[in-house]
């Protein structure tokens, strides 16, 4: 699905990533862990053309996506839930959910109208006639409504808060809203930057189990960047350890027993 080869990237003069290789397979959950400042967020920002990529390859579904503009990436089927300010506080909860999906509908380019039909939340329940009708404008509105209802079903609290400004939401609710907004697009790949940041232990547990379920419910690949190494390794199929801009270690769940991981990352709340 996503291939990153020999990626060098940073900000202005500062080189943060010093040649990394990563890949994410179909319907795979991959964790990226490492200390603060290692460059984890920069990996995602490089894919989204926010960090400056100086060399290397980024391919998605066989297509070179390096150099695409930030706002063009959701059309390729990649969604990014960033670290920190993840929602539009001055927009209502509902507007936050609608915002990406309408942009895709807007685009007349054939690939996008096709993806809209293909990416419906429950595409298996549509027959081909319904799929075709989705491309019409009127039914797109219905489709957006349908997707919003699916998100509300998954996160019922959002329905209650629908008309409220998003800045009135709590930390956990914001995370759900950000996830919901990404799911509205039914992406092929979801990239999450520290989704558990600032949440209570109970909510962290909930978010991790939600993320794990997303893969099966929505049929997507997930990259999860985390400082909470143990939780991330547990829900992931594979984990990369990033240290000082380089991949220091790669492996499946067995790396939980790796000496170095145990000493450095599982001791504290890394």
């Amino acid at each position: 699905m996503l291939q990153i080869k020999n990626l060098h990237s940073g900000y202005g003069e500062l080189e943060v990533l010093k040649g990394i290789d990563m890949h994410i397979g179909d319907k795979e959950i991959v964790a990226l862990i490492g200390p603060n400042g290692a460059g984890k967020s920069t990996v995602i920002k490089s894919v989204f053309n926010i960090a400056h990529v100086s060399s290397g390859k980024i391919n998605f579904k066989g297509k070179n996506i390096r150099g695409l503009k930030t706002h063009e990436l959701i059309r390729e089927g990649i969604c990014y839930v960033c670290q920190g300010r993840i929602i539009f506080g001055n927009l209502s909860v509902r507007e936050n959910l609608e915002i990406g999906v309408e942009l895709i509908k807007d685009n007349k380019n054939s690939r996008n109208s096709r993806t809209l039909a293909q990416r419906t939340l429950f595409s298996d329940t549509f027959n081909s006639h319904e799929l075709k009708s989705l491309r019409g404008k009127a039914s797109s509105k219905k489709e957006i409504e349908r997707r919003i209802n699916e998100v509300y079903k998954k996160f019922p609290i959002l329905r209650e808060r629908e008309k409220k400004f998003a800045f009135s939401l709590s930390g956990g609710e914001r995370q759900m809203l950000a996830l919901g907004r990404a799911l509205m697009l039914k992406p092929d790949l979801l990239m999450l930057d520290e989704p558990s940041l600032g949440l209570s232990p109970k909510l962290q547990k909930e978010i991790f189990s939600t993320i794990k379920k997303l893969r099966d419910d929505f049929n997507i690949s997930i990259l999860i960047v985390e400082q909470n190494a143990k939780k991330a390794i547990e829900i992931a199929d594979r984990t990369y350890l990033l240290e000082d801009g380089k991949i220091a270690l790669e492996g499946g769940r067995e790396i939980l027993r790796n000496k170095k991981i145990q000493q450095v990352y599982l001791g504290g709340r890394y």
Binding site: I50, K69, T70, H71, I74, R75, I99
Partner: peptide, 9 residues
Amino acid sequence: ELASIVGIN
């Protein structure tokens, strides 16, 4: 920045 990420030009 978030606006670009969600697809706004």
